[in-house]
């Protein structure tokens, strides 16, 4: 069968291939990365399972596997102790960035994204009253566009923060609505996190 190309199809193709997206939109990319990194990292078991490509089973084979799985589930239910529910605020050991998938309804924390443009910086960290201004608590991830981003859980209320650039220089957030100069003479920004 010949490839279906002619004048009309070429015209349609050309029109549809025309850019309709925000090329390299750093905000969109940052949103996607925050969502990806904020979701819980798959467990070791899950990663092992992901590495497997299950063989295609016949109906009879699938039925046998299903029966075994159900039986194993009943056995495990009577044998295994109940696990304590995971603290959703716990930082997973694998993630260098302290992120949470969403606000924690129990504690009322709200996942908050920070974005900072610093194409020439070697490192950027988010420091503030919410992490005791510890430089290693919330490193930002650099996107190829030179935009740095991180998402952290914040309690509703007023937070003072800044970006620590290259481990040495504090800079206020140019996107913040309010900037304060604290008693220590360092530039800081203010963020009001609304309650949910």
């Amino acid at each position: 069968m010949r490839d279906e190309r002619d004048e009309v199809i070429e015209a349609v193709r050309g029109a549809l291939r025309t850019s309709v997206a925000d090329q390299g939109d750093p905000r969109a990319v940052a949103r996607i990365l925050s969502a990806a990194f904020a979701a819980p990292a798959p467990s070791r078991w899950r990663r092992w399972l992901d590495g497997w490509h299950l063989p295609v089973l016949s109906r009879a084979g699938a039925a046998v596997v299903a029966v075994i799985a159900v039986a194993a589930g009943f056995v495990a239910r009577g044998v295994l102790p109940n696990r304590e529910p995971m603290d959703p605020m716990a930082v997973t050991g694998e993630l260098p960035i302290p992120v949470v998938p969403a606000s924690d309804p129990r504690a009322g924390a709200v996942a908050t994204q920070f974005v900072f443009e610093a194409p020439t910086a070697r490192s950027v960290a988010l420091v503030g009253d919410f992490n005791a201004w510890i430089p290693t608590a919330a490193p930002l991830l650099r996107l190829p566009s030179g935009v740095w981003t991180v998402t952290v859980p914040l309690m509703p209320g007023r937070h003072v923060y800044a970006f620590l650039v290259d481990g040495a220089r504090l800079e206020a957030d140019p996107r913040a609505a309010s900037v304060v100069d604290t008693d220590y003479g360092r530039p800081s920004s203010v963020l009001m996190v609304p309650g949910r």
Binding site: L16, R17, L33, A36, L141
Partner: peptide
């Protein structure tokens, strides 16, 4: 490598959005 993933997203985002829009 998170940087590599970020680069993938940045490279593929425009085409992915175009396809999804259509």
């Amino acid at each position: 490598d998170r940087q590599a993933f970020a680069q993938l997203v940045e490279l593929c985002y425009p085409r992915a959005l175009r396809f999804a829009l259509h």
